[in-house]
Design a protein around this nucleic acid. Sequence first.
DNA 1: AAGACGAAAGTGGTTGA
DNA 2: TCAACAACTTTCGTCTT
Length: 316
Amino acid sequence: MVKLAGPRRFRINVREVCIGCGESLFTNDYTRGENICTSCGLVSSDRIANRGPEWRAFTAEERDSRERTGAPMKLSIADKGLSTMIDWRNKDANGRALTTNTRATIYRMRKWHIRSRVQSSHHRNLGIAMSEMERLSSQLGIPREARETVALIYRKALAKRLVRGRSIDSVVAAAIYLACRIHRIPRRLDEIVTETRTNRKQISQAVRLVLSKVDVEVPLASAKDLIPRLSSDLGLEGRTVRRATEIVKQAKEGRITVGKDPGGIVGAALYIAGILEEDRRTQREIAKVSHVTEVTIRNRYKELVRSLGIIFENDF
DNA sequence: AAGACGAAAGTGGTTGA
DNA sequence: TCAACAACTTTCGTCTT
């Protein structure tokens, strides 16, 4: 006894609460450009953006043929995600199993397809490099955008034949290190080294090589970028962090930071801020998280206090 | 006893001849 | 290629809290 409604014109979309009846039963009628409450019938807005395509399609094939975009192009995939593949399943487009004859043909095609794809050494190199890059990046927690930068740097290095005679892993590690600096992600070279099979020396050589031969804008590791990481490791309070940020900023303006280990500067700034804000940490604790020794913290601390004229009010 | 301080000697990396 | 050099580390004795 249920009477079916006519052809559905609405795309049901739960939106904000209706100002008429308080229900949250809105529906968007893109064909008319209206928002209609399905509970009380209130038309709430007569100007909504239609985010769908401007064409209409009635069948799946029509939709496929009219679609003008595909998956995004990515540098971190060896072929930029643009090549085609022959599926490994022995099924045709309708999902039916192939006959023995066709299966043999497909097998041959597949073989040559794969061979032609990795035929050039350039491509093979990229394939290996990108999988190593993915492995290392996820181990180090490198975000997506930075990985694209890594891929870009590696491609440039490869194009300039810098990978010749060097291990792929070391160049990948170097690219990751540089991409981290570009994206202002604080990662020390040693952190990267521990996750690779190559040694530190090779990686730092590769870093210097890429830096000199490939045109990439790589900012110097800045003390400021390190503050969030270290202060969260130390569990410092917001006001202490702000104070430390201010100290680092002043130190930078006073030009006493050049050539110094950022870890030491931030460590000292956090130490001072801790004393000033009575959110104190010991030099040892700070030295541990900032990967410099207590002596370095002390030296920076003395310099900062002297040149910035910091006076500890709670001293007397 | 833990933390801070500072001197002295040693290390790995950069710079300039 | 080598020496000079600055920054940083390790080690250790001493002072302070």
